[in-house]
Design a binder for these strands. Structure first.
Lengths: 183, 183
DNA sequence: CCGTTTCGATACTGTGAGTAGCACAATTGG
DNA sequence: CCAATTGTGCTACTCACAGTATCGAAACGG
């Protein structure tokens, strides 16, 4: 049991899912910058203060939203090459989902000059995938981090420069290119 | 002669170089977000209004600063492989220069949700390199754009996630990985 | 009923981008 | 020398948004 039903007082209304959905909806509609916390709160039918009671900053909210939307790492594939290829395709598909890519790029953007958010993003979001991939591929942290830089960096750069997610043909080029990285 | 010495009135004081230097200095010292236009102006010994008279937005200022700092594309190398490798090393070195990487990542970040800035960055900064590389490598726009996404995306992702530029060994891994992309 | 905690609403602070207006400086042309 | 013109510094604004404070009301357990 992870739930501790011991706490007194009014329980939290379960609106996390609604807030996450409203976040992605708002980001998809207005972009990351114009998706203000006020607007997200309004879209979720919730007071802004409620959001700030659960997530200390906008970056933390978006990070939690990303963690929720990406879900646990799915590691499928017979060989290591196939596993890596499927992971890249899965990442590309996630980034292409409405709102997700923009939210990712936006929070990443914010993180560049915000060490706190950078740590949060690195710990809560990237770390699980790093560990899972390291074990599944049997590669060093350094190699896996390099692969993450390449795959995520490429996908986000495309998204950022064009406003559109990467086309399937280019995703396959990415798959082919990274094949030689595995030891 | 591109200069038209025909204009009446007080000439512009030549402070562009000083402003660019102050911009990089301030970004290096305080990071992109805290490098406000007020602070950059103060560091350059210039009034904020003077900056806004020359560059309409902060993004435009940083973009101009990047164009100035990166300079024209240097295309050296006997073979196409060597040319690409040298270009990647040159890009990595530029991104690693104090302030430049952070400025690049910051403006890229801003551009994600600002179509105007995205166009500016794409036209004034990326386009010349795209054209030069396309001609020098004899590859399609699509392939060169893919390579730019990979190289720049990877370097910026590393910079963004760690706060530090990519180490030489990893740059060489990037060089090796992209070797197979050329037709 | 009571203590505790959350919720919604409103109002607020703080920061930074970008603008307006003005007095003064530096030019060109007569 | 003088007028017209344009750039500069300065001060003072507007506006948007992140994040905070406060307070009455609501929802639980005991």
């Amino acid at each position: 049991m992870t739930t501790a039903p011991k706490s007194p007082g009014r329980p939290r209304s379960s609106v996390d899912a609604e807030v996450f959905a409203a976040t992605l909806r708002t980001v998809e509609e207005l972009g990351y910058t114009r998706a203000t916390v006020d607007r997200i709160a309004a879209a979720a039918g919730v007071a802004k203060t409620t959001i700030y009671r659960r997530w200390p900053t906008k970056g933390a909210l978006i990070t939690a939203c990303l963690v929720d939307a990406f879900g646990p790492p799915s590691l499928a594939g017979e060989t290591r090459e196939e596993l890596l290829a499927e992971t890249i395709r899965w990442t590309a598909a996630k980034v292409a989902e409405p709102g997700l890519g923009a939210a990712f790029a936006g929070v990443f953007t914010d993180a560049v000059n915000d060490p706190g958010l950078r740590g949060l993003l690195s710990t809560r979001f990237q770390a699980p995938y790093l560990a899972a991939l390291r074990d599944a591929l049997g590669e060093s942290d350094r190699t896996v981090l390099f692969l993450i830089d390449v795959v995520v960096g490429t996908l986000l750069h495309r998204m950022g420069m064009t406003g559109e997610p990467m086309a399937d043909a280019d995703v396959e080029a990415l798959v082919a290119m990274t094949r030689g990285v595995l030891s």
